[in-house]
């Protein structure tokens, strides 16, 4: 064991401070130190994306980042996306289009999709499939995930147009 570090993170808008060994993986720190259990551990080798969170504006697999590396970062997890009585448009659309089954990949999937749509607000189906290729789902076969994201994109765009 090595000495514990004083870690400061801003998670879903809240400042968090705690002690952790540098080797602790960010995913475990979030899940076990901060009780943020939305992101999951699926493969541990950065293939499946179940642990995806947004760190300083990047979609990151938090199983492949030490908590020490994240020290000082601003993090958004699924818990920071939407509110129970005001779901994010992606959350609404995943439900509407049956974009999830067991739900294990869903937090990483939606977190990644928020970033994808931020960077590319009007993606083609191919761009969605390519942009979501870092997230594995074992249940849905992706067809309805792709549909959910495309539908969310058009809703967001329609809302933007209406606002203008």
């Amino acid at each position: 064991m090595s000495d514990k570090m004083h870690i400061k993170l801003k998670v879903n808008g809240e400042d968090k401070e705690f002690l952790a060994e540098p080797r602790e993986l960010l995913i475990y720190a979030l899940r076990e130190k901060l009780n943020i259990t939305g992101p999951h551990v699926g493969c541990e080798t950065s293939h499946c994306g179940a642990c995806t969170v947004t760190i300083d504006g990047k979609s990151v697999k938090s199983c492949t980042m030490f908590v020490a590396q994240a020290n000082g970062a601003e993090i958004t997890t699924i818990e920071g996306i939407g509110e129970p009585d005001a779901l994010h448009v992606l959350q609404e659309n995943f439900r509407e289009h049956h974009g999830l089954q067991c739900g294990f990949c869903t937090p990483g999937m939606i977190t990644r999709a928020t970033k994808l749509l931020e960077e590319n607000p009007n993606p083609t189906e191919e761009e969605v499939r390519f942009g979501m290729a870092g997230n594995i789902c074992r249940c849905t076969g992706y067809q309805n995930i792709v549909k959910s994201i495309l539908s969310a994109a058009s809703e967001i765009n329609a809302a933007k147009e209406a606002a203008q």
Binding site: S46, H47, G49, K58, S59, K61, T64, G134
Partner: peptide
């Protein structure tokens, strides 16, 4: 190379 998340890092 890899996938979107890995390419950010």
């Amino acid at each position: 190379i890899a996938d979107p998340q890995v390419r950010y890092m």
